[in-house]
Nucleic acid binder design. Sequence first.
DNA 1: GACACTTAATTCAACACGTGAACCAATAGG
DNA 2: CCTATTGGTTCACGTGTTGAATTAAGTGTC
Lengths: 377, 377
Amino acid sequence: MFNPVQLQMLRLISEAGPLSRTELAGRTGMSKAAVSLLTRELLDGGLLAETETVRGTGRPSIRLGLLGSSAHFVGVSLVEAPVVMVLTDLNGKLLGRHEIDWSNDASEVGRLIAAGLPALTAGRANVAGVGVALSGYVDPSQTRCLKSTLLGWQDVPAASLMEAEIGLPTAIENDAKAVALGERLFGAIRDKGSFSLISVGDGIGCGHIINGRLYRGSHGGAGEIAHATIEPDGLPCRCGKRGCLDTVASLMAIQSSARTAGLPGDVKALEQLASNGHGEAIAILHRAGAALGLAIAQIIQIIDPERIIVTHRHGALDGLYGTVTRATIEANVLPRIAGEIDIQFRHVSADIWARGAASIAADKFLSNPVLHQKDVV
Amino acid sequence: MFNPVQLQMLRLISEAGPLSRTELAGRTGMSKAAVSLLTRELLDGGLLAETETVRGTGRPSIRLGLLGSSAHFVGVSLVEAPVVMVLTDLNGKLLGRHEIDWSNDASEVGRLIAAGLPALTAGRANVAGVGVALSGYVDPSQTRCLKSTLLGWQDVPAASLMEAEIGLPTAIENDAKAVALGERLFGAIRDKGSFSLISVGDGIGCGHIINGRLYRGSHGGAGEIAHATIEPDGLPCRCGKRGCLDTVASLMAIQSSARTAGLPGDVKALEQLASNGHGEAIAILHRAGAALGLAIAQIIQIIDPERIIVTHRHGALDGLYGTVTRATIEANVLPRIAGEIDIQFRHVSADIWARGAASIAADKFLSNPVLHQKDVV
DNA sequence: GACACTTAATTCAACACGTGAACCAATAGG
DNA sequence: CCTATTGGTTCACGTGTTGAATTAAGTGTC
């Protein structure tokens, strides 16, 4: 339908915001004549719209922006209960939110999603696709779940099963990878650079964006730092190994350690105790921070990204845990690199998974912008 | 000069060996008509040649292969003394070898290279470029050395300085990255996949090929596992940190540990002692293997490559060291991933650096196949 | 306020490139 | 010797892109 240069234009505008035709000509390397023709098709197709006119010397330039309403995306988080569905537009703007029941049966999930769609979309048409984030490994085509312990899946064609119920193009992806892509496509870091996003929650996940593209690894296993060995001969992990990052630094692990020590499992309470000088609380948080920091340092040493983003909920990294994490990164990365890397800690809400999932659908749409029949249901 | 499709054809043939025009049409997506025209230019330009005719049913197909002699590359290893220069053709075939004096002055190195060229090339024309491998960080344009402890360089425009003396396009690259690219371009793994190459020698280096391309990292620091922390609170390292892989697993570190224990510094001798049950020798080698294995496991968990190649000299990894390395990798990678990854240990000679360096020049040539004036010096 | 100047965007004839279909070439097998 | 089969070439044609000219829409100046 659209040619590769047009797709490139959509990506450029998605990254940089509205651009004038002349700017597009410069960035794509096409002539102004070509841009004029190609953008006309995109305008006619309803994907772009003239947003603002910028005045300077000479004729004002007209910025062309993505027409958000040209396509909507549904993102579903199968990461935890309740299952959150969100609706976004092409710019990543959140337009709706809906919760549905949990299920670990793919077809049933599909039915629940389908049933939730009317409430979510509130009559909005142009839903271009559905993305589902889940904990586990996903194949390169983003249709089969190779393995998910949480869902009890092993080589399940989950996307196909759901798609059969939903009637819209559906793709699945690993939760952390979806969040990383969400940051690239819908978030603050929309450039062609490289970053790794580490999400700290009940578990720990990581997704890499390399040269602007989601890097999934050869077996969908890139970024599996939760089961990287951080403490050789450490605690046994449910994965069968020992001393995995997950056994020390995840909120679940911290909670478990705290309870064993007769302390409250809540991280905030633990941080409070630590700030009052409670030795055991300090030890638990220090150990978690040291482990997470070491793992992040390994990532930096191995792939040297431009940025590291650590997302956390409930302010989990606002206290000692975060401080030790930062200090440990600093101490275990070569100084000349450490100074160059932008490390951000960021609060996020529970909806981050669903938004990331929506970005999976949006990414597919930007590679093949076809609107489907179900528009006017 | 040549269009992108023609460059793609050169890469395809470099990867897969000689291909017929029909095969090229299939792989590039071009029509047979286009391939016929485009290959003719490449044949006329002297880059391709008809190599063999394959008979089957129907008209035999004529394979087109890279004409090795169409371009020659000089690779120089500034990694250790003596400085080795090699001459290769476009297929990576070694055509010459020459040693020159060591210097850490870039212009002087340039003069030494220039002086060595006649002996190396032995009258062969079409030298398209020079690549130099060195220990340190190199900028993305492969012209400036940002930092090299060994050479005492800090932000030195080394490639430009050398080029001024040599009169041929010259590029520099980190040693391990050059070796990894050499494997991709000249070696056994010429596909578009992903692998990490770990080179174990006096020091330890690592280069990543991701989706068929050298991944350098945002600051040229990808793969710096030598200074990844493997033993927190371990021995101090010259980089200022503690417990770096380099302090435990490099041949230098092993040698140093052995001498401290009053044992021979040679790895072979140490392996011999270990196989006779010498406790201290076993401990040193075991510790090295555990460290290297853990570092490789981290790489696998973080980037999930298709392959890991560990290169070593003097058979350093043939004994206990290698055995422990393998076992440690196995024990610290998620089983479902471990089983999927091809891990190879490979003996290499000292010329591997220079050959890798030549591949840097070859890679540039394949992106812009222009032969330069100096041909007929 | 008329005019020159500047930059954005469009139009249009010219053209380069890739394609499909037909054609020629070279072999194996009957 | 004929046919089937596959590889490779030729050529008229169409599509998509370009450069130059043109139109458009402003600002700054005297």
